[in-house]
Design a binder for these strands. Sequence first.
RNA 1: GCCCCCGUAGCGCAACUGGAUAGCGUAGCGGACUUCGAAUCCGUCGGUUGCAGGUUCAAAUCCUGCCGGGGGCACCA
Length: 570
Amino acid sequence: MTFIPLRERLAELLRRALQAAQAAGALPPFEIPEPLPVEPARHAAHGDYGSPVCLGLARVVRRAPLQIAQAVIPHLPAADFVAHAEAVAPGYINFTLSEAWLAAQVAEVLAAGEAWGNVDLGKGKRVQVEFVSANPTGPITIGSARNAVIGDTLASVLSAAGYRVEREYYVNDAGSKARKLAVSVFNKYAELLAAPVALNEETYPGAYITTMAESLVASAGRRYLEQEPETALREIMRWAIAQVLVTVEADLACLRVHFDSWRHERDFYATAAAGEVSLFEQRLAVLREAGNIVEKDGATWFTHPDLDKDAVLIRSAQVIPNPEDRPTYLASDAAYVWDKLVLRGFDRAIYVWGADHHGDVPRLFAITKAQGLDPERVSVILYQMVTLLRGGEEVRMSKSSGEFITLRDLVDEVGPDPIRFMMLTRTVDVTLDFDLDLVVEQSDRNPVFYVQYAHTRIAGVLRKAAELGLAVDTPGDLTLLKHPSELALIRKLLALPEVITLAAGAVAPHHLTLYATELGALFHAFYRDCRIADPDDLPLTYARLTLARAAKSVLARVLQLMGMDAPDRM
RNA sequence: GCCCCCGUAGCGCAACUGGAUAGCGUAGCGGACUUCGAAUCCGUCGGUUGCAGGUUCAAAUCCUGCCGGGGGCACCA
């Protein structure tokens, strides 16, 4: 079940009015602008929605905007949801919704239940959201939390917007970080067995390395010490990454983040049988054919006119004393985007990257175009970095130093909801101060509880009404809903399809937190102004209980989209 | 030096992507619980949207140049 946002329905009315006005000769012929702008009014005096379209038409029509607007009004088709439309200086067309129609919509919202707000923006297209994709070299840290929450919420919103969505975690298991993990475990393992450290390379110091090494001692004994180090390392790498991924999956599950698939970088270099060519080699051959590959200094480079430098390294045999050729990140990107858009046939691929990767964006697009793929099918969500604060001081973290706060620890302390909400409150474009003191605080200073409290309060009212002997689920006579606070709440309930359209279309999941907060505020205002359970006026009581249930349903829905709980008690 | 993001009320941020009188939260001050949950609500104070130009009927939003903050420019990932 999907719904058409009100502003789109209004835009359609305007479109038909503009056509009719031209057909009737009230306006000269011109092309109707697309998209046709319709905006929520900012001031009550402007009605509910307004369109500035006539302001822009003044030039082509060669008439004053207000005159154009006045010429359009008589041609607006009648619609049950519009009570009034008028032309206002300097040339806006303002719409006021019918209050009777608004009140009646409460039943529609309630009937739609969890489907309320769904729109058909995606038209069933398949989109993959790939996110987190942290190197599998240790536990998930708070550093990845913003990525996880943005990606997961975006996926939920796209799903509500009519896309078929898959969530994917890309496992970087072919690079030097994977090797470093293996070396770390191997060296610690050797140390535990009092053997001389075999590999003099940099290692991770974290306690989880020791845990894995102990586990390895228990299961394998001294076996790996007797093997050729590189052979042992390859086996340990595979094992260690699998171990880490188990914890990664569990850590993210704590935050209510789940993936549909886990794609391994290594697979792009692997072959199923002897004599076969890996996907990477196939794509490399195609790029070479297209003239995008140059050999220089004994290495392989990718070149493309869109790049701001001559060439980007794709493979070098002399990077590390490693039996395998170890290509760079860009190399697997070439195979991966092909894998997404062609082999697996997604219509769109969305990458969620931290701002520290912004330099990689042009390369990704270049290597997409170079393979003949439409770059419009690829989007990169770049979110700015998170600054962790504790006691007003910045907390620095790094896996290399072994000093970091794990996501697991924080979730265990405060639960997923405050983390998710805080990570969503700002646009992806601004750096986020994440206050560890505030997020653990269960008080009204913590904004997450405001929205959940609104839901809880409704649940409390419904409980109270039931105690009074009222049949809470009885459909009320909605024509009794006329109070400004009732109507304001209803207007907000009806805005959800627009919010989902906006959040999905502009890839801006922060609109959900704004909407949830506004919705909560309007419920509180309704609660203040309108006594819901009034034994002396049962018809009005049932009407208001119906509205309260609808508000509860929509709050639950928007919290669900954000991956948060909608508690009945707090 | 080049690239990306940001600069809006004391502080933290919105502004539906160029529209009307720039909003919300916090902090400050003053109010509202014998009445459906006060984790709430109401009032009040607070603005030359960093600066200077430009484009437009219309600029917080687009362009140029400065200033300030953050991030990135590896044979790392």
